[in-house]
Simulated assay, not measured.
Amino acid sequence: MKVTAVHDRKMQFRIQARQHVLLSDQPVENGGEDEGMTPPELFLASLASCAAFYAAQYLAIRNLASGGIEVEVEADKLRDPARLGNLRLHVKSPVSLNADQHLGMERAVHRCLIHQTLLQPLSISIHLEMPVSR
């Protein structure tokens, strides 16, 4: 998988994955034009959409519902170092679930690729590339 972010102007970045493009920006009070989600909002959006996908699949496979799932993700902004923490997922099912189905839905959401990624120790390498000085 590969995603590329390119600085367009001011605080805006064009983000591309395969043929899909979206815009990230900052609110006006942070020097942006508020024309897109901030990077932390995109991070939470990734978790929410991944969890929603797994929840929707759970319902569809069991013929319980073919749409209508909603997932809300909230996080606190923590300091030292600055980061998001205390993530809370709120999954709203469009149909009532019995106790077994409720447990199954929770297990399905826990299998979300983003959720599982966040639960494991991460390794992030940074390679800085610059033009050669003459």
Score class of each variant (00 low, 15 high):
residue 1 M to V: 09
residue 1 M to C: 08
residue 1 M to N: 09
residue 2 K to R: 15
residue 2 K to Y: 09
residue 2 K to D: 10
residue 3 V to S: 12
residue 3 V to M: 11
residue 3 V to F: 05
residue 8 D to N: 09
residue 9 R to L: 08
residue 11 M to T: 14
residue 11 M to D: 04
residue 12 Q to P: 04
residue 13 F to S: 09
residue 13 F to R: 04
residue 14 R to D: 14
residue 15 I to F: 02
residue 16 Q to V: 15
residue 17 A to N: 09
residue 17 A to C: 12
residue 18 R to P: 02
residue 18 R to V: 09
residue 19 Q to H: 14
residue 19 Q to C: 00
residue 20 H to N: 11
residue 20 H to F: 14
residue 21 V to K: 12
residue 22 L to Q: 02
residue 23 L to H: 03
residue 23 L to W: 11
residue 24 S to Q: 06
residue 24 S to N: 06
residue 26 Q to M: 15
residue 26 Q to A: 15
residue 27 P to A: 03
residue 27 P to K: 05
residue 27 P to D: 03
residue 28 V to T: 12
residue 30 N to H: 08
residue 32 G to I: 05
residue 33 E to N: 11
residue 34 D to K: 08
residue 34 D to A: 15
residue 35 E to L: 14
residue 35 E to I: 04
residue 36 G to P: 01
residue 37 M to W: 05
residue 37 M to Q: 11
residue 38 T to I: 05
residue 38 T to S: 13
residue 38 T to F: 02
residue 39 P to Q: 08
residue 41 E to H: 07
residue 41 E to S: 06
residue 41 E to V: 03
residue 42 L to S: 00
residue 44 L to G: 01
residue 45 A to Q: 07
residue 46 S to F: 03
residue 48 A to P: 02
residue 49 S to M: 12
residue 49 S to N: 12
residue 49 S to H: 09
residue 53 F to S: 06
residue 54 Y to L: 05
residue 54 Y to S: 06
residue 54 Y to N: 14
residue 54 Y to A: 04
residue 55 A to N: 01
residue 56 A to F: 03
residue 56 A to P: 00
residue 56 A to C: 02
residue 57 Q to S: 12
residue 61 I to D: 13
residue 61 I to F: 09
residue 61 I to L: 13
residue 62 R to M: 05
residue 64 L to F: 09
residue 64 L to N: 04
residue 64 L to P: 04
residue 66 S to P: 01
residue 67 G to H: 09
residue 68 G to L: 05
residue 68 G to H: 08
residue 68 G to E: 05
residue 70 E to Y: 03
residue 70 E to V: 07
residue 70 E to W: 01
residue 73 V to A: 02
residue 73 V to G: 00
residue 73 V to Y: 02
residue 75 A to C: 05
residue 76 D to N: 13
residue 76 D to T: 11
residue 77 K to D: 01
residue 77 K to E: 12
residue 77 K to W: 08
residue 78 L to T: 04
residue 78 L to D: 08
residue 80 D to V: 02
residue 81 P to N: 06
residue 83 R to C: 08
residue 83 R to G: 00
residue 85 G to P: 00
residue 85 G to I: 05
residue 87 L to E: 03
residue 88 R to E: 11
residue 89 L to K: 07
residue 91 V to L: 05
residue 92 K to R: 15
residue 92 K to D: 00
residue 94 P to N: 08
residue 95 V to P: 01
residue 95 V to F: 07
residue 96 S to V: 07
residue 97 L to M: 11
residue 97 L to K: 04
residue 98 N to I: 07
residue 99 A to Q: 15
residue 99 A to V: 13
residue 99 A to G: 00
residue 101 Q to E: 15
residue 101 Q to K: 11
residue 102 H to C: 07
residue 105 M to N: 00
residue 105 M to S: 05
residue 106 E to R: 12
residue 107 R to T: 10
residue 107 R to P: 06
residue 113 L to H: 07
residue 113 L to T: 14
residue 113 L to P: 02
residue 114 I to S: 01
residue 115 H to M: 03
residue 116 Q to R: 15
residue 117 T to G: 02
residue 118 L to Y: 07
residue 121 P to H: 06
residue 123 S to G: 11
residue 126 I to H: 06
residue 126 I to A: 07
residue 127 H to E: 15
residue 128 L to C: 07
residue 128 L to H: 12
residue 132 V to E: 14
residue 133 S to P: 14
residue 134 R to W: 04
residue 134 R to H: 12
residue 134 R to N: 13
